[in-house]
Design a binder for these strands. Structure first.
Lengths: 144, 144
DNA sequence: ACTTTTGCTTGCATATCGCAAGTGCAAATA
DNA sequence: TATTTGCACTTGCGATATGCAAGCAAAAGT
């Protein structure tokens, strides 16, 4: 069963079902969206160019379309760059910051079956020691 | 940077980077794979037809290809049906059962910003009261 | 024997992706 | 001030993936 409706901007949004997993995948179910979130969680703020520099090599048109979708869904927001009008700053909205627990569980799952890179392992040890505390601290670090 | 290698079946696997998120998305980064996992978490065992019956309406060719990928990655396994040779049973491998915390965090995130369907809300209350206990019990229920 | 069920496969139109090149404006440089 | 460079996208287009319908062989039911 497929529910089709229009949002405020008259853009068609297809909701496949009311299932939370399905709805979440309607937005994040692709190979790139969560990498954008990852970049923003680590860097707090990114320019368009910063995303392009990431190791996975996202294509510029795909990046543009994902940023629009994520902004429409209020997961990220666009800010003026403090010193340059040519640059744009992207940052996580609260809804985006709250994705951290999901990203953490992905890391923990991955760590059980594959090899976590050295740079991430240190952070992961903190998570394993005190997951709730880690999330609290990390979330707080976005308030400033 | 893109690393390309071949697995035992000589099928090309593209790993975009060593990042855990990226690697996980290489397998699960689509709109269907996690729905298959969801179905198996709720139902424990599914036939090919069971997956097709799910509300989102996956196409049969897509389902077939996802099942192959998930099996190749040892997330699910195929079993003989106890009474019928025509039927095939799919179930989660341990690696698949261990995805539960990720699915739970998706549910919790969704619940904060959207409306969780009634049928799921009850389960979610249990999770909110005792997440660790819930995961333990749920995981145990797969051992029998 | 035949009809139906089951788990797929195949063909094809359409949508999405990925790469390369291009555009317009702001900022740095000469 | 004129020119070049940097930045955030957009556009075009071939390659790939998706979605739909139909087909198929083996097994099960009648």
């Amino acid at each position: 069963m497929q529910v089709v409706f229009k949002n405020n901007f008259m853009k068609e949004v297809k909701k496949r079902s009311d299932c939370p997993i399905s709805c979440t995948l309607d937005v994040f179910g692709d190979k790139w969206s969560f990498l954008i979130i990852r970049d923003l969680l680590f860097a707090k703020e990114c320019t368009y160019g910063d995303f392009l520099k990431s190791a996975e090599g996202i294509a510029t048109n795909i990046l543009a379309s994902r940023l629009v979708t994520l902004e429409e869904n209020k997961v990220i927001e666009k800010l003026e760059h403090p010193t340059s009008k040519a640059k744009v700053l992207y940052k996580l909205a609260q809804k985006g910051i709250d994705l951290l627990p999901i990203l953490i569980e992905i890391h923990l799952w991955f760590d059980k079956y594959e090899t976590t890179p050295e740079e991430i392992r240190e952070m992961l040890e903190l998570v394993k020691k005190d997951k709730v505390g880690f999330i609290e601290n990390f979330t707080k670090s976005f308030e400033s």
